[in-house]
Amino acid sequence: MGHTVTLTVNGTSYTREIEPTLLLVELLRETLSLTGTHVGCDTSQCGACTVLVDGRATKACTMLAVQADGATVITVEGLAKNSEMHPIQRAFAKEHALQCGFCTPGLMITAVDFLERNASPSDAEIRHAIEGNLCRCTGYHNIVNAIRSASAEMRQTAGVRPKVAAEVNR
């Protein structure tokens, strides 16, 4: 104990006393009970734990919670705004881009960061962008479709819809 961290998660500020060895994903899941972020491996291969840290997709199993002191974090629970789903969420459902749903939060978060940096990606760029997020159910086919579909909607609503990733300080 003895380490105090303060961070903003999904718009709420939290201050907690934590062990220096605590991982960011453990802080989110076990200390803050935000269990939508998952742990799928222990070598940072799978990407199930991906969250936005200061606007960038980050594997929360590979970051100590103390490193997130002062950071702004967005998890899957923070993607919807005022109970309106983010375009990526709607697109994942519409395109059947999830089956078991375990990898889905991490993939959506990666996609949000990616689409806010590349508004009109090619399929090859989409595949490259999500290469660090493994899915064993979908074969990625419908995930690529969903990200393409979300990008089209996000282009149309750009300027109207608040940006999830860009609304925090980079």
Partner: peptide, 9 residues
């Protein structure tokens, strides 16, 4: 899907 895309599952 609704619960799985919102982290509620």
């Amino acid at each position: 899907d609704p619960r799985l895309i919102t982290g509620e599952g």
